[in-house]
Design a protein around this nucleic acid. Structure first.
Lengths: 212, 212, 212, 212
DNA sequence: CATGAATGAGATTTCATTCAT
DNA sequence: TATGAATGAAATCTCATTCAT
């Protein structure tokens, strides 16, 4: 890894950023399969050969970018780690909101991540699965560390319950994201209060089942 | 629509089926973007010109096929409509099993549907969304028709509760489907009992919250 | 084979010949590895796609051309079959002269054959070996059919002797071909008599050992 | 020449050898045309610029390497010069065995030489021909020096006879080398006795014609 | 001496679509 | 209706060589 991409990493910051921006843009808009290295070099204003000098192949370039966006994403999330609520429901909500925030502040990064894990281009399945495991493991402590589980009912499988809650709330999140697609940032912000209230409604229902 | 594809629809049954089979095969294996009309005509043993004579463009061909598989899918589901349990949880479980069944009996059809809704090739987003709404509307009665809601607690929003349950169970289903990817049909069948039992465990937890 | 190249073979004669000429030219000048399909389509004045429509890949194109030149070559040789002398030495000499003739009448064809068998591009080794065997088998009767072996000495292995003679005379032939490279056709023709006389000198020596 | 490569030749021994090894490896595996200076610098662990600093161009690098392997080859052969049998046939056989030995001890060197003289990349034809002449001249004394020609028959052209024998035996050698291609070293060694015996059979036939 | 970033032409191949027959 | 030849842009990737540092 270190050797593989060192040519690129040793570049001056500005140039690196131009190239990264071009790649993020391209992969976010077209996904892996339909992205074009031709378009990337045009956007980045570098020669065709140089891109391959840095990254070796489109495949390796994509994996580099994927790792880059994942690192960025995890960093953002972990910056908030300290302030996470101890109650599971509140924490799930908080994390959901963080994700929404990233999705709006860095839509390209968010889109690349989602695409990678949901679509998984066949020729990259293994590599993406590895990264998925890694990010899953990295996320676990986020959810369970320093958690106050005292309110969970004794007679249910706590782990399964938490899984269900996550699945359900992810479904709710996606519903909102889908809704947001055709809305401006301002519109979204204006509705945010209502959304948060709805979010809480959903959680209340779940809470009723798992908390005593 | 009627005019658009009438040339194809008026074909003799056998020829239509050969062409359909070739398209299903191709789109299931490669998805929309990476599918090739060249390969399709080779598989279907028809000429290049004829395919475009029937469908106009790759894009329109795909949409035709998408509608075809959706119709097939819905038909299969609706055939089971009468026997659906009146209890919501049992019904969700039953529908989940029907989906699994289709996924294994007609993997190509299942794969095309999943791909369409999950990946949504950018240039087809609008058309796919339309279809998504349509299928969503079509599915609604499936879930609510003739439902026995008497056991739902009075003090919760029934609709939201059902949404949550669906989201959660979809998460569980996907978890299993992911697990199945690297298993043979026989292995899956052997584990089916355990899986159904786990499925029920998850539902018990949810039930506790929404049923009185 | 028939299906593979039928698209090309069904073309009208004139177009086929233009394309063939372009390929022969290119492969003779550059060999397989360094030939360029870009240059070929330019020479043949057809579009890039069309070449691949006809032949599928550079590799298959080359194999088609190789078979074409081999067929041409064998046909030329077999046309002379009837008049071949019954004495082995005279026959070897005759065949050698036929080859020289072809080499000068159709230098591209000759060069492609020689290149294929001598250089054998690694990725085509197997296919070329198959063809080599085929041509070797086809050549055998040329050398032994209706041969008068009565003058061979009884106490030597006739087959080994004939092998040696062929190897030796091939060496002599190559020596002349090498010599010819820097000579004009006219020069060569003027020297032909001397060359044939030398040829015969060489054979006399060999004859002395194997004939009684 | 001296000026041309002096930068390289003045290097410390170890570095020179690393670079030479990389070049031998590359040219033996890929030939001139398909070799890559990129791969060479990677193997040699030197910079791109340095290679061109030393050798000027790929073409000049190849010629340097060609001269190097030829020198190596000739040195090896000449080391055996003293012990060479005085009988022409025995000497031809001995030289043939020496070549086989080199082919197995230094396959890269052998392969580069063979490739150069057999394939002759068009753009290097002249330079290779010069070297061919040089090596041919250098080989001559090897064959005739201190030779016992007393057993040659008086009535034949001795030089032509020797030429024929060389051609014939080269044909036999190539036949064996071709055979060896698909055999392991051990297999070859196990068959060596049989091969030498066959070699001698061939020579006996030739001997009969040229010796009295 | 030495580096390695940078170039851009050129390699083979695939693609959806058109159109003369 | 039906054919399949024809197009040429675009895809990814490699190449020998240069030059600022």
């Amino acid at each position: 890894m270190i050797l593989l991409y060192s040519k690129f990493e040793n570049l001056e910051q500005e140039k690196k950023e131009t190239i990264l921006a071009a790649c993020l843009d391209e992969f976010a808009q077209y996904g892996y399969q339909n992205s074009s290295t031709n378009r990337i070099v045009k956007k980045a204003e570098i020669s065709k050969g140089l891109l391959f000098h840095y990254f070796g192949s489109k495949r390796l370039l994509y994996l580099y970018i994927l790792d880059y966006v994942l690192a960025y994403y995890l960093k953002k999330i972990y910056q908030r780690l300290d302030g996470l609520p101890r109650d599971f429901f509140e924490r799930v909500m908080e994390i959901g909101l963080i994700k929404l925030e990233i999705a709006y502040q860095e839509p390209a990064i968010y889109k690349i991540i989602i695409d990678a894990f949901i679509y998984k281009p066949a020729e990259l399945e293994q590599e993406i699965n590895e990264r998925y495991k890694k990010i899953y493991e990295a996320n676990k402590p986020l959810l369970v560390q320093n958690l106050d589980t005292s309110r969970f009912r004794d007679d249910i499988d706590q782990e399964k319950a938490m899984e269900l809650i996550l699945f359900a709330m992810e479904g709710v999140s996606n519903k909102y994201l889908d809704l947001f697609k055709n809305m401006s940032y301002d519109e979204i912000m204006r509705k945010m209060d209502t959304i948060i209230r709805e979010y809480q409604d959903y959680m209340e229902i779940l809470k009723y089942g798992v908390y005593r």
